[in-house]
Amino acid sequence: MTDFAPALGTLGGLLIGCGAGLLLLRNGRIAGISGILAQTLWPSAGEERGWRIMFLIGLPLGAAVVTVFRGPLTLEIHSDPLWLASAGILVGVGTRLGNGCTSGHGVCGIARKSPRSLGATATFLSVGAITVFVTRHLLGLGQ
């Protein structure tokens, strides 16, 4: 269980928005993380890897800067390895099939008033909530 942290949440959200805004305004690119990762691993014709690799390196580096000030990241994971691996595979397949994740659809796409992103975000939020309800409350798994 985690305590509601509106101030840190807002601060973090502003930083995420600045990151996405910077990439859009300076590079004309969308900060969709699943897409950036997939295009880095298997680039389509004419797509370059360089800036994508830099963006991906930036993610853990930015988190590392935060740990300097706030100490190590808190990671409360109550799932066993098989559970985590299954979840990872679903996230990998789902974000490719659905063309984006929380960043590309949730943060960037909705800001562009994309109906696709709105539809995707509404879907993964509701399915995520149903999944937690079923696993945690109906099946009593994963604490």
């Binding site: 942290a5 959200g13 930083l15 995420i16 910077l22 930036g58 930015g62």
Partner: peptide
């Protein structure tokens, strides 16, 4: 820098 801001934001907001 964009990835760094994104990662920092994700870490600060936990």
């Amino acid at each position: 820098l964009s990835g760094g801001l994104f990662g920092a934001g994700l870490a600060i907001s936990e």
